[in-house]
Nucleic acid binder design. Structure first.
Lengths: 205, 205
DNA sequence: GTACAATTGTGCAAATAGTCACAATCCGAG
DNA sequence: CTCGGATTGTGACTATTTGCACAATTGTAC
């Protein structure tokens, strides 16, 4: 303990959590590393080693108690509460995110959505009013938002990002097809479907 | 050569390509590994080593010729043509994908979209008619589709996937928040925004 | 044409990640 | 209360990935 946990391990924890939630739903009380591994195509040894970074979470002979492990992972990933997040860009992606039902029971709630288009500002997505990007500062302060999603066109993404960072955002999920520069104390993840498709097409040669 | 290229390297090639396209747009003719590295937060040495797997693509003293490298990466990734792809699920994600303008110049075209909801079947997204999932077989044969996107609820995703695989799909991009089982000759990539958000929230502890 | 600044490609070393295999432990049956 | 099957946690090992450093090459300036 006390050790810095490698990023690659952190990246697997949400996968473990997702499958555990499913098992819980199916009424399962215990799960072995072998069983989890089979459901995730990850070796049982790796799962055990990953989890062992956070203490002795399993019981020898029995496996991992599903509910206990879910709670533990929730705490580790800091999603034992719900984070308010902001979405910038009310295009198709912004709309899809604002309307997505899957966030709430996984630790997040879209609490604000912004755009710069006067035609969109003031209209609603679900029960959320699209606000002017100029209001970002006030809103994220008021709603205590630390996580934002950038869902603007590539041309606006860096500028929006800088603005978010200036106003205290500490983590960004970026859907714009461009690499965003952020200070190293700000964390960032990227989603670009074309990138994934290109990885796939390589293997179809 | 003849060697199997590690997956992790293949995963970076689309990133190189994306930044090269931007540089080309800006009128740049040459780019050094250092310059690319700075734009991507990847070490220059790593970029050189990655690219060296595919021949001597740069010029010592000068760097990489942008146009040449773009062409080369296009060929390596098999996107020197446009792939027809199918989207299954015409919800928010399916709509967003079908309406997205960014695919075409990156090697892909949404050529079909399917749903099982009778209310949606027959309606249009852009100029694409939403078809019944029962027509998957015929349409992907007719349009020569090898790549599909699963954008259904989690509950339907595995069934849809099995159906796609049975009918010749060789690569799947999965947006459903569930791990999909596929035969090992079928390639798969996953996108789940909640997973990314959870990776981020870990660091906000 | 020579000197020099820039930059690649790459062998080697270091760091990181993953697998193996087994002692330690747990639980249930008898 | 002992035995046996199951399963974890982990040290030792192996494999993979990254970084370093420099010879080889290129182009330019004079």
């Amino acid at each position: 303990m006390g050790q810095e946990i490698p990023k690659i391990i952190i990246g697997r924890l949400p996968l473990y959590l997702r499958v555990l939630r499913r098992l819980k739903n199916e009424g399962k009380v215990y799960a072995s590393s072998q069983e989890l591994g089979k459901l995730l195509d990850i070796s049982a040894a790796q799962i055990r080693k990953d989890l062992s970074h956070f203490g002795e979470l399993g019981k020898r002979g029995t496996g991992y108690e599903v509910n206990f492990l879910i709670d533990k992972l929730d705490k580790i990933l800091n999603i034992d509460k719900v984070w308010n997040i902001a979405v910038v860009g009310a295009g198709d992606v912004g709309h899809a995110l604002a309307r997505y039902n899957g966030f709430l029971n996984r630790g997040f709630k879209v609490a604000a959505i912004f755009d710069s288009d006067p035609h969109k500002i003031g209209t609603k997505v679900r029960d959320l009013v699209i606000k002017d990007v100029k209001e970002i500062k006030d809103v994220i302060q008021e709603k205590n938002i630390l996580i934002a999603v950038v869902a603007t066109p590539a041309s606006a993404a860096q500028e929006v990002t800088d603005h978010l960072v200036e106003n205290g955002i500490k983590a960004i999920l970026n859907y714009a097809p461009i690499y965003l520069k952020v200070p190293k104390n700000v964390h960032i993840e990227h989603i670009d479907p074309a990138i994934h498709l290109q990885k796939l097409s390589y293997y179809l040669g």
